[in-house]
């Protein structure tokens, strides 16, 4: 059996890759995808702990997180489309109307 901390390492790797993507990419679509990576990292942790304790709650939390991810993707992509329609760009750092 694979020890739980190996799952935690995998989760940490996906989390850091996701954060790297969010912080460095300009394309909003890829930033949203990196967010999905982060949420998946959390899910791996929850499911691994669920097996560690033999308790199904972790899996239920993971389902809630998937729900949140679905909502996030829908709203995020809705914003993206509205943004593209108004500003004609998908780059995060060009959306600086509120900056001074």
């Amino acid at each position: 059996m694979v020890p739980t901390w190996h799952y935690l390492l995998l989760s940490a790797a996906l989390l850091t890759i996701g954060i790297l993507g969010v912080l460095t990419r300009r394309n909003i679509i890829i930033i949203l995808m990196s967010l999905e990576l982060i949420l998946n990292a959390v899910n791996i942790n929850l499911v691994a702990f669920s097996r560690q304790w033999g308790d199904v709650s972790g899996q239920v939390f993971a389902i809630f997180i998937i729900t949140v991810a679905a909502a996030e993707a829908a709203v995020g992509l809705g914003i993206l489309i509205a943004l593209f329609r108004n500003r004609d760009t998908v780059n995060a750092d060009e959306i600086d109307l509120l900056k001074w």
Partner: peptide, 17 residues
Amino acid sequence: IASLLLLVAMVGAVLMA
């Protein structure tokens, strides 16, 4: 609450797009 969240997200997405 999660189902409510999905409803809100759906309305929001439709409204914005």
